[in-house]
Amino acid sequence: MIASQFKRAILASFFIILFFVTAFSNARASSGEGEAFNASEVILHHVVDDHVWHFFDGHYGTLYLPVIVYSEQHGLEVFSSGNFYNDDHKVVPYGNYTLVDGHIHLAADPEAFVLDISISKTVLMLFINAALLIIIFMAVGKAYKKDAKKAPKGMQSLFEPIILFIRDEVAKPNIGSNYEKFLPFLLTMFFFILFGNLLGLLPGAANLTGNIAVTLVLAVFTFIVTNINGNKHYWKHIFWTPGVPLPLKFIIVPVEILGIFTKPFSLTVRLFVAITAGHIVMLALISLVFIFSSYYVGIGSTIIVLFINLIELLVAAIQAYVFTMFSALYIGLATEDHH
């Protein structure tokens, strides 16, 4: 039975990759027969944010997302990003704004500041991720509310071990006795990243957790939670490190202060790089097929991409764990009791 499940999993992954490849071939076709295939542009186009959500070529293949922009000159404006594209799918200016490499600028003054709070591809992905989290965990929470002493079943039994893992292996050992206060934050953090990572692996999905803005905000949340809850030992350790001779304090204290900020920075970069790199590797391997235009390369890179995809599943879980674990560790360092 396990063997058959494994076979099915392999088959499913194969089709997913096939889907990926076909989506790509369309993308390539859209770039025009005359133009040379530009792998780096295609790859970057797939991992960065955009105002449209491109699934496949053709009239219905692109989802034009709403643009919400604010500028001092023109105030708040909301319109469809479809307005930036003409019938040949070429970028054109619309109204007061132009779209340059995915960024919206004022047509009159490209240097002026424009606040772009559009529902972009990544923002929509964020909504989907958040909705999924709420739907799933509301259902799970309800099952617990109904009867606490009943044995878990269904989705409950899928997530209970993970929740227990976060509680017993991440929160408890890193934070200590008052871990319960931070458990909701850590659980939300873990499942947000895990779901984001896994959703990002789906064909056609946006790269949510591989976006530096997303990881930055997550890290800033950890930074805020850590420093708000930091006790006097934590601050004393930073500003007047005990057990260090006075002259050394002049070196240590700036390093410690810097450390407050390097912690969230490392969190930001680690998750962003791990997820984006995975996507880039996969896309690069697929791009090889189009660069060489060879069946052999196609078969070879499909097999490799299959394995990279499986590794990415692992990375998705590991990165979610690592981010949560380090968050817990930082919180633990700031709140631990010194006896």
């Binding site: 944010d49 919400i68 606040l115 772009d116 709070i117 559009s118 972009s120 990544t122 923002v123 964020l126 976006n211 803005a213 997303v214 930055l216 905000v217 997550l218």
Partner: peptide, 8 residues
Amino acid sequence: GTGLIIWQ
């Protein structure tokens, strides 16, 4: 991206 930071 600024917008994404706000939304996130």
